[in-house]
Design a protein around this nucleic acid. Structure first.
Lengths: 243, 243
DNA sequence: GTGTCGATTATGTTTAGACTTATCTCACAG
DNA sequence: CTGTGAGATAAGTCTAAACATAATCGACAC
């Protein structure tokens, strides 16, 4: 009685989730309330318990419901809502904005890692890794600045790669899938080098993204990305069209 | 044959997902490859097809697999990995860092919205909303600065709320669940007011978070949060302990 | 070669039923 | 009143089976 318009049929689990979500948003069931158990909802919606389970799991993943065995399901009191960002490959990002992509490798060499990087990667200071700095352009204007360290031990085949043609980001994405990643956003004032490479002034506020990835061989790479001034990274956490 | 050590039993779907993930990361199955179909995997892992389905759905949600009816399941060529941030309530954020939380309302009044806000909220310019500015402190030092507009029409009960005691963030979280949210990170140089309220210098790079939320009555609130210098927002996208 | 159409197939979704497991409840003993 | 233990209960997981649906593939006609 909620979804299921003409066009595409909405899966039952979805429409149950939508209806429950509506009841929460409209405060028919308010914060902390215990909601009917799966069996009851299954009866109400004329569905199997597994289907109701799927719907409620979904809402629990969204952070709207708290579920505990035996204790039942309650509406989350203090929803710590989650936001999902998809971090695309630079080139696609640029091209999606309708600009022509190009990139330039500023420096590429093997070099002992400084303390800060060693710390981020959990490797001993002074270990030799591949250090790479590159600028990515959209329509000839700087789009982002990349300062990357790559661990050859976790990225087999690295020696053959030539980053002047294929950018490092894409090579890694295609050749070294990761198991774990850590992302951090921060803001920094552009230093002299940032300013020069991004063609902006020193002191300009820059959005910085640090990303480190690991696989089962150890850390793969850590990178500091400085976006061009004014760049925004956004997400939309919505649901499907409901009722 | 992968998980299932002594202690807690790992759900079968999980351990199948782990094993498939391992095969992908170790390139037994590489980018673009078609992997065995659900029925075959069900046989291999001695599970029901539904269980395999659940495992593969999980990996598809992670962005590791591409699944299409009839066409089968393939390893994603260009994994656009997703990062999930949980944006907690300020007070909890401060307290989790082991600091004492306090906040101060700098301004609170009903006021016509300027063009920029009207645009963000999809409301006509000049509409009267509640405008609120507040500073949140940790151990007496500025932690973040909040500049918020609230739409009373979408937040029933707002009139009674007194934000000098309970902060707006928490009142909204508890009283106006949202259906859709939009988050944007950016960086700005602190203007004179930012600098004064955050006790820093003008021009300091600040990490800015814009958040707007909607429910079925329309836009609820939009807020610009300026974090104290050096603040980082991070996420860790990992999986469970596998094999 | 090109296009159409129908059979085939892999995934999508649901169902009913069973068993497992955490934990809440309550009665009873101390 | 406090602790303990048995029982009940709600979610967690899995299974086997069925039907739905999107796409692919191949046969056939042109």
């Amino acid at each position: 009685m909620t979804d299921k318009q003409a066009g595409a049929t909405v899966p039952k689990a979805q429409s149950i989730a939508n209806e429950v979500r509506r009841r929460i948003v409209e405060r028919e069931w308010s914060q902390g309330d215990r909601i009917p158990d799966e069996a009851d909802l299954a009866t109400e919606f004329d569905a199997a318990r597994a289907t109701v389970n799927k719907a409620l799991q979904l809402l629990a993943d969204e952070g709207l419901l708290d579920r505990r065995r035996r204790a039942g399901t309650r509406v989350t009191v203090n929803p710590v809502r989650k936001a999902t960002f998809s971090i695309p490959v630079v080139r696609e990002q640029v091209e999606q904005a309708g600009m022509a992509y190009s990139h330039r490798v500023v420096a590429q060499r093997r070099s002992p890692i400084p303390a800060e990087i060693a710390n981020r990667l959990d490797l001993p200071e002074g270990r030799i890794l591949v250090h790479l700095r590159a600028v990515h352009y959209g329509d000839g204007l700087p789009f982002q600045l990349e300062d990357r360290w790559i661990n050859p031990q976790a990225a087999p085949g690295l020696e053959q790669a030539d980053f002047r043609h294929l950018n490092a980001n894409e090579w890694l994405v295609r050749n070294a899938p990761y198991l774990r990643a850590e992302l951090t956003f921060s803001a920094e004032n552009a230093d002299r080098r940032d300013a020069r490479l991004l063609q902006t002034r020193q002191g300009q506020a820059l959005l910085i993204l640090h990303r480190t990835t690991w696989n089962d061989l150890g850390p793969i790479t850590t990178v500091r990305v400085a976006f061009r001034p004014g760049h925004r990274v956004s997400t939309e956490s919505g649901h499907d069209r409901s009722s």
